[in-house]
Design a protein around this nucleic acid. Structure first.
Lengths: 338, 338
DNA sequence: GTCTGGCACTCACCGGGCACGAGTGCCAGA
DNA sequence: TCTGGCACTCGTGCCCGGTGAGTGCCAGAC
């Protein structure tokens, strides 16, 4: 077990390294922090911390830098979540309040998060399966062609073309629309399959083909869109540590382009509470030099999606976590209002 | 006026420089191209080309590289558009054919273009004002709350909340919906304002408030969304020439994040035919080291939006232009089919 | 036991000096 | 008008020694 002071030394190392981006030595540490001991003592502590794998030397005769394990300990035991200042909170609220639709909410959230944390922001669109149905619309476009539109309580809209096996009358379409809506409005999308299961049977023989075609498109949409959508922003922030990673930036950009990877990343985050994945804790290789701070957000108690940031392992964890949490809360509020 | 051979020398310089990324000297030129003259002669030609401002030396005793003006001449006079190979064409078609909705079409297009050109791809969503109305839907959500949904012939969907001054009955909403649609379906969005101008007058006094509220939201949406949306991809390709611009990459990423800038960029492109903007020809400072190749695409003869790529001025213009043109054509086809 | 000051050692970094070679401009001659 | 030759420039790579931050270890103090 590490003594109190050694933990203090680790904290000091993390803080200094995050600030200066340079390996930190024993002398500098004692000068910048009131540890109450001499550099020699700190050196002994550092040697112990290195033995335990919390810090490392880039090369002999250089200062120490935290390892992933060191950051882990720092995040778990040594760092709190730094709350935002009240001007910051007000700025968030003002900025998000101006949004006109869901795309705008998500877009603004991404920009906000990127700006606050000065890192790459990732925001997932509210999940379909966790949202509830606000309305299902069926629009006749041609005799045997219908457009299916799904609207969620979070403002998300999905549409699909449906080619029906036979021409559909305006009346039977209205009938289907009415019955469909009466069953599913207000229910969660995840429950829709069950709710509509026996719907075709209640129709006349001649309409059943159309009904099942429409329903199967509806169910397909739910499945397809379970691979959720997301928006990213602030990639220019990656260049801030271009001297850190001159070439490491490439795999990160590549990973960010593969939305599947990011969705998996966010998916791995806990549903409630904040998740921090540090360096090699990320399964994806390209992100081995980065940390991911993610949190769920939602209009009610339940998380409908997640958001977070991707940055260098050498990041200001307390500040980043504070910003991520605050933004998630406000977005939740905005969604609940709309 | 430049002699035929000097133009040939310029072409050779551009080709070599694009291939090797290194300043090209007179000796190397004569070795790699059949110019039929000695290095000394080429040197004279190069001196002349430099006097005219088509090429430059990074420093004394280095080879020459093309200037923006040199690339301009190359694109205008010396280079054709390189058509894609037929396997490439097939691949494009197959890839785009799998798209399920507009978002998917645009997403696939971006990925495709980025992959083909190995550069950053930018695709604008079909413009609202240039599209035609497929359907306008009004959904009652609460007594005095209506959701307005616009659907275009290109598959784009926009929705807005409308808070009405007084409760609306299902009947009067249906009435409005019917009359609205009969006026605007099949017409261009740009013409909608005129078409609905006198609509409120034809309603009973009690409904006029609601009608005008709905209409003004509709018109607002048209205005707001005229600042079009777009999608970008392939930013990881920027790292390919990270030794070219170690720090120049940052302003480019920043410019790419500002969609307004990109939209202006695409907006400046000619409606028909391909537009190539080279280096300093781009108004935005961050893009002074890049070239933009853009072209309009559409479901019919008319362009409904634009797409293009952003890359280093040192790019393979014939190949890039070929890819951009081909992709634009196929996307147009896909949109026309849907 | 724990902390401290001292001391020798290691190495990354920096700047200077130097050789190399690609590339140029110019000139005289074909 | 083209060509070969020649002197010149200057960026690049390499070696080398000095500097200094930082370390590990040890003997002595509290």
């Amino acid at each position: 077990m590490l003594s109190e002071r050694r933990l203090e030394v680790l904290r000091a190392i993390v803080q200094d390294y995050v600030g200066t981006e340079e390996p930190v030595g024993s002398k500098a540490l004692t000068e910048r922090h009131r540890l109450g001991v001499s550099p020699a003592t700190v050196r002994n502590d550092m040697a112990a911390l290195e033995d335990e794998g919390f810090i490392a030397q880039p090369h002999t005769s250089a200062g120490r830098i935290p390892t992933d394990k060191g950051y882990r300990l720092f995040v778990d035991k040594l760092a709190g979540v730094k709350p935002l200042s009240s001007p910051e909170r007000r700025a968030i609220q003002n900025f998000l309040d101006g949004a006109v639709d869901l795309d705008d909410v998500v877009g603004r959230t991404v920009r906000l998060l990127a700006q606050l944390t000065r890192q790459v922001a990732v925001v997932q669109y509210p999940s379909l399966t966790r949202s509830t149905v606000r309305h299902v619309e069926l629009l006749p476009l041609a005799p045997a062609r219908v457009m299916l539109v799904l609207i969620t309580d979070t403002g998300r809209v999905e549409q699909r073309m449906v080619d029906c096996p036979s021409p559909v009358t305006e009346d039977s379409l209205a009938d289907l629309r009415a019955r469909l809506n009466s069953r599913v409005v207000g229910r969660r999308f995840a429950d829709v399959p069950q709710l509509v299961q026996d719907l075709p049977e209640s129709f006349e023989q001649e309409d059943r083909g159309t009904v099942s075609t429409v329903l199967s498109t509806l169910l397909e949409t739910l499945v397809e869109e379970t691979e959720e959508r997301l928006m990213i922003g602030g990639t220019a922030n990656l260049t801030r540590f271009v001297h850190d990673f001159p070439l490491t930036i490439r795999p990160v950009l590549e990973a960010l382009e593969e939305h599947v990877v990011l969705l998996k990343l966010l998916g791995e985050a806990k549903d409630s509470g904040m998740t921090v994945r540090i360096g090699h804790e990320n399964a994806h290789e390209g992100l081995n030099a980065t940390s991911v701070v993610a949190v769920g957000y939602g209009s009610g108690d339940e998380a409908v999606a997640k958001l977070g940031v991707v940055g260098p392992t050498r990041m200001d964890y307390p500040g980043t976590m504070g910003a991520v949490r605050a933004v998630a809360r406000y977005v939740g509020q905005i969604l609940a209002e709309s």
